[in-house]
Amino acid sequence: MLGSRLTPDAAIAGARPGPRRRVSRARVARGATPYLLLLPVAVAIGAILGYPLVDLVRLSFQRYGLFELIRHSGSWVGVANYSSVLRDGVFWHTLLRTVVFTAANVGLTMVLGTLLALLLVRVSAWARVVLTAGLVLVWSMPVVVAVQVWYWMTNFQNGVVNYVLTSLGVGDFFQHDWYATTFSQLALVTTLIVWGALPFVAITVYAALAQVPHELVEAAQIDGAGPLRVFRDVTVPVLRPVLLILTSLSIIWDFGVFTQPYLLIGQSKITPGNYLMGIYLFEEGYFRGDYGRGAAIAILMLLIVAALSVVYVRRMARMGEEAT
């Protein structure tokens, strides 16, 4: 056996023993099929990313600054880059801050996104069109633009947010400085990221909800299951793969997020006191032109995010087994 199995074939195998007795040529064909299907993606990614990835690993073991960059050659320094990062107190503080930040962002994104998708199912058709259109409008906003708008709404001089809060009598927000403390800065970044991620999560979950068979829902309802039970026993099993993917993707994206915090907080306010990992990498590795150290930080980030999402990835893999 070539270690390949076509699922439906196997599923029917019991009912129709025919294929089992066929000549081995058919098996070879089956064996090659998944590889042929994967080949284009593998070739495309390998050809474009293969060398840069090797390069990144190589750089992380080299002294590679602007001087070396211009001459296209670094000098080997063993694990010096890694140990310098791991001995850096800023790294550990940043890591802790980023983990908390990621948890808050992913949690908010997933819960609110799923609630939005469920809302989409419950509303009338016209309201669904309106809400989806709104979501897409939000989604269609380039991140760089969204950042400008966010800044524009929260600016110190005449931000509309301060105006609204003052008008509503929440307090005196005249020229309130939203960028004065790290907490306030990161809270603003969180609103921006969650706002921007909601459409993707909501629409994807909604699309996955479309796969929930009506018959099953109806059958469950006839059996007397309440809405919560229907959700748990019928909807969630169908949603689970998509929810897991979305959660792990969100973890991956939010952990390494760079553009939103960097542009919204603004380069001039970035200090080690408000670094997130993506910014730490950029500032310490690239902005300073210490590419070797930057590469080491990148690889450490990869390992950390892999560790953070391993639970999800393993569950994914297990579910994959169940499904096949």
């Binding site: 800044y151 005449n158 400085d177 001039s268």
Partner: peptide, 22 residues
């Protein structure tokens, strides 16, 4: 100056504050 004590000279642009009459 009544500007934010933590802001830089681009956020906001000083000339925008000036154009506001402030």
């Amino acid at each position: 100056s009544r500007a934010s004590k933590t802001t830089d000279e681009i956020h906001p642009n000083p000339y925008d504050v000036y154009a506001q009459g402030l």
